[in-house]
Design a binder for these strands. Structure first.
Length: 357
RNA sequence: UGGGAUAUAGUGUAAUGGUAACACACUAGACUUUGACUCUGGUAUUGUAGGUUCGAGCCCUGCUAUCCCAG
């Protein structure tokens, strides 16, 4: 009996090649493209998002070529609630969200997986660059970095549970991006040369502040820029437009570069300071999801990533006993922002992660 | 009103009389399935009108503006 796999096909190269490979490996493959929002809803028309009409057509075209049946699931409502609303709320609280992680956690690997189970599938698969392995000693499924370190996406997948990992396949985990493109070209996929996706998929031109204000109707009034001593330095354009460590777009000029050090929602002020003021030597992480271990019960050395595409920082994890972990860095880290994800690694293996408090 | 000082890109500064530099801001791009950071490039004929000089931001004169001290 061939294993049944539901492949999430965004219309990009990666997931297309993933689907093709699974098919070639003998799986019973079904393709699905998630419709997460309507461009009309968010006021955009662009081809580089993950769910425009042309993306759906690209996915369908690839599926057709390989004799894979293809469906479109409308997850607009879930995406709205679990990703876009969270994103907006986070900014309103003065935090810095990572919608891609929420999308993986709440949409792709929960809503989609649920559907797959309903349809009696054995697995779901995506084009993510990461690897899953079963640890025979502990019986736990491990999430590991992709072999292509430059494309590794384990960071955005740290929220996966054991149940989800058990049911997931990442066919690209051991491939290089260039190999994937080559495989796509060999198979003459329509999207072989399609550019990589980037920026927030539901935000036009990367201008998330405009999205929050215009589409989400968030109101973020102007307030004061102050220094750490409380001295007023100027007027800011709404607190949602700033994030910790930000330098550009302040609209102010001093003798040296100034960065956002802190945001004070209560007083609607943004604190600016010199580069030296944006380093932290520790942070607290909440909403933990642990993968390689069941629990962190004693101080543990780890490499920690606080943002996608950043090399990890060496640190020690201290369990706080209340479901949180205190991370003490070996060297102070720049611009640690509340709301961002912190992911702990032991070599190539993801220990787990959580949200920076 | 009298005396003094200064006027260089959005801001703050630099430039032995020889064809405008630096930082911040702004902007374009690179990087990037988050926000940032970072990197590369772009952006002024020097308040104004004349004069001296082969040549002036730099010297001289008028005007204008601003600042300071006197009242």
């Amino acid at each position: 009996m061939r294993k049944k796999v539901l492949v999430a096909m965004s219309g990009g190269v990666d997931s297309s090649v993933a689907a093709a490979l699974l098919k070639e490996q003998g799986y019973d493959v079904t393709g699905v493209t998630l419709k997460l929002f309507s461009n009309e809803d968010i006021g955009i028309e662009r081809s580089r998002t993950c769910c425009s009409l042309t993306d759906i057509e690209d996915a369908r075209s690839v599926a057709f070529r390989f004799g894979i049946s293809h469906h479109v699931f409308n997850f607009g409502e879930q995406f709205r609630e679990q990703v876009i609303d969270r994103f907006a709320r986070s900014y309103m609280f003065g935090q810095t969200p990572n919608p891609c992680i929420d999308c993986n956690r709440y949409i792709k690997f929960s809503e989609l997986l649920e559907r797959a189970m309903m349809f009696d599938m054995d697995y779901i698969a995506t084009g993510h660059y990461a690897r899953i392995e079963l640890d025979r000693n502990t019986g736990r499924y491990l999430l590991k970095k992709a072999l292509d370190a430059s494309k590794d996406q384990s960071y955005v997948l740290f929220g996966l549970t054991q149940e989800q990992l058990k049911r997931t396949l990442f066919p690209l985990g051991s491939l290089n991006k260039s190999e994937v493109r080559r495989l796509a070209e060999e198979r003459e996929l329509v999207n072989a040369k399609k550019p990589d996706s980037q920026d927030i998929c539901f935000v036009k031109d990367g201008d998330y502040a405009a999205f929050l204000e215009n589409t989400m109707k968030l109101v973020s009034p102007p307030g004061n820029f102050i220094d750490s001593a409380g001295k007023v330095l100027g007027i800011h354009k709404g607190i949602i437009r700033y994030t910790i460590g930000q330098r550009k777009g302040l609209g102010l000029s001093f003798g040296s570069p100034k960065y956002v050090v802190r945001k004070d929602i209560e007083n609607n002020t943004v604190v600016l300071g010199d580069e030296s003021e944006i380093y932290s030597d520790s942070m607290t992480v909440k909403d933990l999801n642990l993968i390689s271990v069941k629990a962190v019960t004693r101080p543990t050395a780890a490499a920690v990533k606080m943002r996608y595409g950043q090399k990890e920082a060496l640190a020690v994890l201290y369990p706080l006993g209340n479901g949180k972990i205190m991370v003490r860095f070996d060297k102070p880290q720049r611009a640690v922002a509340a709301g961002q994800a912190a992911v702990f690694y032991n070599g190539d293996t993801v220990i787990g992660g959580g949200t920076i408090e």
